[in-house]
Design a protein around this nucleic acid. Structure first.
Lengths: 337, 337
DNA sequence: TTGTAAGCGTTATCAT
DNA sequence: ATGATAACGCTTACAA
């Protein structure tokens, strides 16, 4: 008995219409060069006539492969990951691949749920952000037959493919940039959002350079949940200090730094004279602030493209794909530091 | 002969491990209340032991339904659509649905390709941006058995579900806002990116109100491809006019308006005295500029939530789901106008 | 270059 | 409450 619930034509309908077997029509889509020109032409016509759209669930089931790439990002709407997503989505589309997306809000549990659901699709690849996951996620990706690609971070010790940069190096470079400009009392403002382990890596790099220069490394923890408010809070609190008033501040990200710049505007401070401000991320607003924000630009688009490259080469079953792609960040010196 | 290409456990493996049939295990996932408590418990243990992940392609094939919602947006990384995507993705995740995403760059052909690919997944719903599509896309969605939801626009004449707002009304409201503030020579700066038909709707609303007030409606077409540069170009050109120098400018979007504000900063103009600036979109940087940008906030998150609501009710086969959800935009008066 | 047969892992249907 | 069986629409393996 037929269980067809849609009127959608199938491969069999196309095959019947042009008097060929289903497998030939199937080949027409997957390996066109193996189908004779006149057969191709007849198939093309039939496909058009019926407005045939291949059922990808059926294809995925039969081949145990799919043309989707699944990615989990902390958030979609933020200025951080969007450029990478765009590059990823565009690059995948060029190769006939599609993007399945979920956001984790820096919650490893949410990431785990997303990974679990995604693996059910047999994705061509599973792309994650950062290298910190729950134990269950680790188990899932270790047992997965799909390739896993971690982004925004690097860790030579790990098994998955990695496309990223060194957060520690970002911290080092920012500290050196400020030291080179003569600052000595340099503070680091942490992200009030917990779970941003990469930001802690950046602080580690910062601290490393400070200590090598014989200077104290210290961080400030704002309590405000909203990043802009947290940045403002940090600025107010630190400039109010009688002793050890900082000359420069590195913020865990541009949102925090932006909050500080706006707070400085309101208080009519002049930056960077009163205090130099340095961020991370080079968000879209960084060059629009007054003063414009000095920050570090992560290789967002480049990471997206590198992921596409890996996926495409995996699809083609190429050999010798590099397991680790290290990309460089760029210090963008503007007015605020 | 077995064609299994992965070691991944299947429903049959779980069933074998706990001595039940596959269908019972299948029910455990889909209709838990129909499985006896002790059976449930045994299944739960087996699932955990094997780290079982359901094959969604198989499920989708068998049921002709899937737990994915496919969406095509003009772009992912822009400040415009990201908040809606975030709300959509989050809302879907709460209901165990996933988001398949593609960007069209305002190209109807790219949209068509994406729609074609997406329909192959039998998505629970297909979500599009705007109501302008190629003829082939129209044919595809007309013939699709999946529900189609159009967003960011409204058109009573169309068949798909719609969740949006009136761009024409946005144009009207902006013009009235500026008229109320005493401006009379008000210009409209078009988007240099072609294909943004919604922006032309906003201009139509603008023109309507201007003409009703007995004032001329006119638009300026910048040529620079980059929106920020286009905005700057428009400001320079229009303020250089000897006669009919505008008192206020409505920009097709906040990017253009931002370009104008930064250009004004460089020229040390004082806004809104020299010229009032009004945007559209309420992008993340709008309140961070100096002066902060007056603009219209579209109901981005609300649209995402409304789409989720429709999808969930469709999944539950509810009756009487509204085919058109009209949401309101909000004029956000700040410093620039 | 094309075709046949079997199977991918799940769910709908019907039966008990 | 549970199960047997037959699809779902496609691709693999092998054959011709």
């Amino acid at each position: 008995m037929s269980r067809r619930r849609t009127e959608r034509p199938t491969l069999a309908d196309v095959a019947a219409l042009c008097g060929m077997s289903t497998i030939t029509v199937s080949r027409y889509f997957r390996e066109p060069q193996r189908v004779a020109p006149d057969a191709s032409e007849r198939i093309r016509t039939a496909v058009e006539r019926l407005n045939y759209v291949p059922n990808l669930a059926a294809g995925g089931l039969a081949s145990a492969r799919s043309r989707v790439v699944a990615m989990v990002v902390p958030n979609i709407s933020g200025p951080i990951f969007a450029p990478m997503l765009q590059a990823l989505s565009d690059g995948l589309a060029e190769h006939g691949l599609q993007l399945l997306l979920a956001s984790s809000y820096f919650s490893m549990d949410a990431e785990e749920r997303a990974v679990r659901a995604f693996l059910g699709w047999n994705p061509a690849a599973l792309v994650l952000t950062s290298r910190f996951h729950t134990a269950a996620t680790e188990r899932l990706i270790a047992g997965a037959s799909q390739p896993v690609i971690e982004t925004w971070d690097l860790d030579p010790g790990r098994a998955p493919y990695q496309v990223g940069f060194s957060h520690r190096q970002v911290g080092r470079d920012a500290a050196r940039y400020l030291l080179d400009r003569g600052h000595r009392r340099i503070g680091f403002v942490h992200n009030s959002a917990a779970g941003d382990l990469s930001a802690q890596e950046r602080f580690a790099g910062h601290a490393e350079v400070m200590q090598a220069a014989g200077l104290p490394a210290w961080g400030y923890n704002p309590t405000a949940a909203d990043p802009m408010q947290a940045g403002a809070q940090a600025l107010e609190a630190l400039l109010a200090r009688k002793r050890q008033r900082p000359e420069a501040l590195v913020f865990a990200n541009d949102n925090l730094a932006c909050g500080a710049i706006l707070a400085a505007q309101r208080r009519s401070l002049s930056l960077p004279q009163d205090v130099a401000i340095f961020g991370f991320g080079d968000y879209a607003f960084a060059d629009k602030l007054l003063p414009s924000l000095s920050t570090t630009r992560p290789p967002a688009r480049e990471m997206g493209q590198a992921v596409v490259d890996i996926v495409v080469r995996l699809q083609a079953a190429e050999e010798g794909i590099a397991r680790r792609v290290e990309l460089a960040c760029e210090v963008v010196g503007r007015e605020s530091a």
